[in-house]
């Protein structure tokens, strides 16, 4: 209810959320309206053909004669899935890590935050590459690899917030009622971090989608014939002169989505950090 109130109070936030929902809906149901499948090569048709309504290639075809409309939407499914799962992974690790460290404090806190410092000093890109090389290219591993290196900010913020929460009365009350540390963290600390987590989710999601696209640039992305916005934009960037549509459509979707997510994150922060919420 709180969420709905925030939403209704901010027209721009509402507009961004609705627009994002529209993108999501298009990505999910759009492919059903096209006569083509995601990985279908039209051997007889034109390859790298510009957009046209006549052949039902609304976004044109790619350099292997596959329909770009369908591929853009399929790529969107994958990019958003990678984004969501990786964000969840990184938030889960970050919140658990930060809340535990912040709540227990003392030596455990120091050790745990020291580990975060060490990981901060690790060049992230190198880390992801090695993980990808080590564990192959399974989709699941991409999620985990990205999520596993992206939780550090969340951990720091969650710890800071927990330190503040720890001193509040309801935590003391919970301790008096005989709950153990883990229960307190789970029932009282983590739920109170929810606002923070929502903001961070909206901030992390676009980052993760960009990371996936960077991996595609390095050739470490998803497996053909599956695709993602990153992979499509990368292919399109290579053909930007000869077949600009192969860059424009996927890049348009990618950019719009990232823009919307960024707007949502910004408005949410403004709304949630306002005193009284």
């Amino acid at each position: 209810m709180n969420g709905v109130r925030i939403l209704l109070a901010d027209r721009r936030l509402l507009a961004a959320v609705l627009a994002l929902a529209a993108v999501l809906a298009l990505v999910l149901v759009g492919p059903w309206f096209s006569p083509y499948a995601c990985d279908e090569i039209d051997f007889a048709g034109d390859w790298s053909a510009p957009p046209s309504a006549s052949g039902a290639h609304w976004f044109g075809t790619d350099s292997l004669g596959r329909d770009l409309f369908v591929r853009t939407l399929c790529g969107g499914r994958l990019s958003l899935l990678v984004g969501l799962v990786s964000t969840l992974v990184s938030l889960a690790i970050g919140v658990a890590w930060g809340a535990l460290a912040g709540y227990r404090g003392g030596r455990l806190d120091q050790t745990m935050m020291r580990a975060v410092d060490v990981l901060y000093a690790l060049p992230f890109m190198f880390f992801v590459i090695v993980l990808m090389v080590l564990f192959g290219r399974h989709l699941l591993l991409i999620f985990i690899a990205i999520g596993a290196v992206n939780w550090l900010d969340m951990a720091r913020v969650a710890r800071g917030q927990t330190l503040a929460l720890r001193r509040r009365e309801f935590v003391a009350a919970a301790r008096l009622s005989g709950l153990d540390d883990l229960q307190i963290v789970r029932r009282h600390i983590v739920p109170n971090l929810a606002g923070l987590v929502v903001i961070y989710a909206a901030l992390t999601l676009p980052q993760v989608i960009l990371i996936e696209s960077f991996l595609s640039f390095l050739g470490l992305g998803v497996q053909e014939p599956a695709t993602s916005w990153g992979a499509l934009v990368n292919d399109g960037a290579r053909e930007m002169e000869s077949a600009p549509w192969s860059l424009l459509f996927p890049a348009g979707f990618l950019t719009t989505t990232l823009l919307l997510l960024n707007v949502i994150a910004e408005r949410l922060r403004a709304a949630l950090e306002r005193p009284g919420c």
Partner: peptide, 21 residues
């Protein structure tokens, strides 16, 4: 604000070749 957001939302492997072109 919109221009600035565009800056974070376009991958630089698209921006860099465009600048060259």
């Amino acid at each position: 604000g919109a221009v600035v957001l565009l800056g974070v939302s376009v991958p630089n492997y698209v921006v860099a070749p465009l600048l060259v072109l």
